[in-house]
């Protein structure tokens, strides 16, 4: 799949932003006034910034309001509704903390749940696709949720929680990669089933429909990024999990915390790039590619 920068930015930033909102909604850390303002501002910048970035890959972004209508069947529609609902609830809850110095725990809990639901619905947009075997697994929501909660804990300064959750997210990430490498072969879809010609013999793509490129090949048959995948996985894992955990275990210093957050952010961006770049769509089979 084509790793569109807007979609990578969206899933990375909004994942972290809603992760932070989740912790803030539960009262970790239990802050009011200016400190609360700064934390909420960071969370909203990431969550809203991510959502805005996601509109850049739309063909007709001016019609985005229509996307809230099909929640009965569409995970993308559900995601939009959860995101807006979560942001509104958390804004009211945040206003109470920042301006009134009072906490409404029930509202915060609802906001936390909506924040997690937003991340879950995002992950389901990918996990629902049978056409991309690497994504079509329950591990995909587990990966998105664990990274979001771990990153949120890191931003919220919950050292013990963040350490444990980062390790958990790292384990899920590794399992997701290992499973994903086998998924396409295990899915049962191949050139024989794609063409229905397998009963005659071995099928080989002889001639593509056009000599030029097309939307399908650009969008679904992205092969450039697969070359350095293993190295990038290692780099991603070190930056996303390894380095932040080491920095958290070290005696607390603001500089270390900042470094841990930046390292985690870059690590997640690399992981998300691989998420798309390595994903094989079955339509590639019609072109004799994967």
């Amino acid at each position: 799949m084509h790793p569109a920068p807007s979609v990578i930015a969206f899933t990375t930033l909004s994942g972290l932003g809603f992760g932070l909102l989740f912790w803030l909604g539960l009262g970790y850390p239990n802050v009011t006034g200016w400190v609360a303002f700064v934390l909420f501002a960071i969370a909203y910048l990431m969550a809203v910034g991510g959502l805005l970035a996601s509109t850049f890959h739309l063909g007709r972004p001016e019609r985005f309001l229509k996307a809230f209508s099909q929640w009965r069947s569409s995970w993308l529609s559900r995601e939009g509704i959860c995101a807006v609902a979560g942001l509104i609830v958390m804004a009211i809850y945040g206003a109470g903390l920042v301006f009134l110095g009072t906490s409404w725990p029930l509202l915060g809990a609802i906001g936390a749940v909506l924040s997690l639901l937003t991340v879950f619905t995002t992950s389901m947009i990918y996990a629902q696709l049978k056409t991309v075997a690497r994504w079509h697994t329950r591990l995909t929501p587990a990966l998105f949720l664990s990274l979001s909660i771990a990153g949120g804990a890191l931003l919220a300064g919950q050292v013990a929680m963040a350490t444990a959750l980062l390790v958990l997210a790292g384990i899920i990430q590794m399992v997701w990669w290992l499973q994903g490498d086998k998924a396409f072969a295990q899915s049962g879809t191949n050139m024989a089933t794609a063409t229905g010609l397998g009963s005659i013999g071995t099928v080989r793509a002889f001639e593509p429909p056009h000599t030029g490129n097309n939307y399908l090949l650009n969008e679904f048959v992205y092969v450039v990024g697969r070359k350095h995948a293993t190295k990038l996985r290692m780099i991603s894992l070190v930056l996303m999990i390894g380095l932040p955990v080491l920095l958290l275990l070290a005696p607390f210093a603001h500089l270390f915390a900042l470094l841990a957050v930046l390292s985690h952010l870059i690590g997640v961006i690399i992981s998300r790039w691989l998420f798309f770049a390595q994903a094989e769509h079955v339509v590639g089979l019609y072109y004799g590619k994967r």
Partner: peptide, 22 residues
């Protein structure tokens, strides 16, 4: 007139039947 061009339908189609007009 309702399409926002998100491309998700093309992602979900195994046959490559849908193309987003550039």
């Amino acid at each position: 007139s309702d399409c926002i061009g998100c491309g998700l339908c093309a992602w979900s189609c195994p046959y490559g039947a849908r193309e987003l007009d550039a």
